[in-house]
Amino acid sequence: MATKAVCVLKGDGPVQGIINFEQKESNGPVKVWGSIKGLTEGLHGFHVHEFGDNTAGCTSAGPHFNPLSRKHGGPKDEERHVGDLGNVTADKDGVADVSIEDSVISLSGDHCIIGRTLVVHEKADDLGKGGNEESTKTGNAGSRLACGVIGIAQ
């Protein structure tokens, strides 16, 4: 089992970053940390998408990683996509320092995120509470600013 993974985020604009993942036990939580720069100040949706395909930019990554066919939600919700990591918060300089621990994603097994795409979005994720159909699919997080395929790390 891989215990570490990394993702280099890039987009068409100024947004870029490096996100690290570490899972010490196969059924334990995954620590997610790193930094994203070039964002507007505020909240930005942060999700693992189904495919590791960036051939047409971030759009070819498909929908959120959702092997259990659930509705979109927040990272602490029972009803959520596996890939729903909530929001990252950018400061006035456009930098989001990421520090998350998640017990639904994994670096092995059915919820493995390796080979899938991590995406940072234009807007805040409403965590499935926006009151419309799009909220239950995407959290109304808007366009995909930057993305990268999650790969095994040393």
Rank of each mutant, 00 (worst) to 15 (best):
S106T: 08
S106H: 04
V82C: 06
C112R: 07
Q16T: 15
C7M: 00
E22S: 08
V32E: 04
G28T: 03
S106K: 09
D110H: 14
D93Y: 13
E22C: 07
K123D: 09
V48S: 01
A124R: 10
P75Q: 15
R116Q: 07
T136P: 11
G142C: 10
N54K: 09
G74A: 13
G142Q: 04
T40A: 11
V119G: 06
L145N: 10
V149G: 03
A61V: 11
V15W: 03
S108Q: 06
G45C: 08
D91Y: 01
L68D: 04
C112I: 02
R144S: 14
L145Y: 10
R80K: 06
R80N: 04
G45T: 03
S26W: 11
N140K: 14
S106N: 06
E22K: 06
G34V: 06
A61F: 14
R70C: 14
E101T: 04
V119I: 09
D125K: 06
P75H: 13
F51L: 10
N66A: 05
D102H: 05
T59R: 14
V98D: 00
A96C: 15
D12E: 13
L145G: 09
G13Q: 04
G94Y: 02
A153Y: 09
I19G: 02
S135W: 04
E41R: 06
V120I: 11
K137M: 12
S99P: 09
T3H: 04
K123C: 10
Q23N: 03
I100H: 06
S35E: 12
K10Q: 09
S135F: 02
G83W: 15
D126N: 10
C147P: 03
L9P: 02
P63Q: 06
G142T: 03
P63I: 03
P63G: 12
A153L: 14
G57N: 15
G38D: 04
G115H: 02
K123T: 08
S135R: 08
G45K: 02
E133N: 05
K137P: 12
I150T: 03
N66V: 06
K37T: 14
G109H: 01
T59P: 14
N132I: 07
G94N: 03
T136R: 05
G45S: 12
R116F: 03
